[in-house]
């Protein structure tokens, strides 16, 4: 589809230059011009309609295909440098054992036409852990793979659970549906008086099983445990 602007300019230039010599050719130019304007009128309607259609398809697609994996709602979306940039997206969904999780980010970037991968900045996740406890996970950047509902966080992570666990990890791969988390980099977990450090860590079955591997170091400070135990009951 040649660009409408060039045709118009071409017709005008031909017409302008030979106006005196061949007025009888006016009819041909007139036909050309009217065909052009018809085409412009057509495009004026078609182009916006196509734009709207694409947006509807995209938003619909991400909403529909989220299925149990959670629906994305966006505060605003813009297109920058070939990727869709969403500000403060929020993802809500349910894990395999039907417990709600929520993930928000300050900004999310998805390459247009790229596969199901969204780069996230300023991540906060609220994920169910063991029993009826919840973990809030904070990290500066990571990649959310919508295809298999995985969040790979490449920066330092702060994790805190309602049961009082405080954890610092250097990276983490989180499988949201299975609510499992693993990290192949050093991790430090602390609670009340017990500190566990190791070079790799995995929390499986929603935190029912914790596996620390490679150079496990546990420090228990009985006095602090007694303090918090007394404080608790």
């Amino acid at each position: 589809m040649s660009n409408p602007k060039d045709n118009a300019a071409g017709a005008a230039r031909r017409g302008h230059g030979d106006a005196i010599r061949n007025t009888e050719r006016g009819a041909e130019d007139f036909a050309l011009a009217s065909r052009h304007s018809r085409r412009v009128r057509l495009l004026k309607r078609v182009l916006p309609a196509a734009a709207i259609a694409i947006t509807v398809v995209f938003v619909g697609y991400s909403y529909l295909f989220s299925g149990t994996r959670g629906a994305i709602d966006l505060a605003s979306a813009s297109i920058e440098g070939g990727s869709l940039v969403m500000s403060s997206p929020e993802l809500n969904g349910f894990t395999s054992d039907d417990r709600p999780y929520k993930m928000t980010a300050e900004r999310a970037r998805q390459k247009l036409g790229g596969e199901d991968v969204i780069e996230l900045e300023g991540i906060r996740a609220h994920v169910p852990v063991d029993g009826d406890n919840f973990a809030t996970i904070q990290a500066s950047d990571g990649v959310y793979d919508r295809g298999n509902n995985r969040l790979d966080i490449t920066s330092e992570i702060a994790l805190r659970t309602t049961s009082g666990i405080v954890a610092k990890l250097d990276s983490a791969e989180i499988d949201i549906a299975k609510s499992s988390l693993s990290s192949s980099n050093p991790v430090e977990i602390e609670l009340d008086g017990t500190k566990i450090a190791a070079d790799s860590f995995a929390a499986e079955e929603g935190g029912k099983v914790f596996v620390f591997d490679k150079r496990v170091r546990v420090t228990i400070d009985p006095s602090r445990i007694r303090e918090t135990a007394d404080a608790r009951n």
């Binding site: 566990i196 099983v209 496990v216």
Partner: peptide
């Protein structure tokens, strides 16, 4: 001695919540 800190080291630690056991 009651309240001196205890330091445990091992290659691996598995904490199994449901069986209430931690295995070093």
């Amino acid at each position: 001695s009651g309240d001196k800190p205890i330091q445990i080291e091992s290659e691996r630690l598995e904490v199994r919540e449901e069986d209430n056991v931690a295995v070093f």
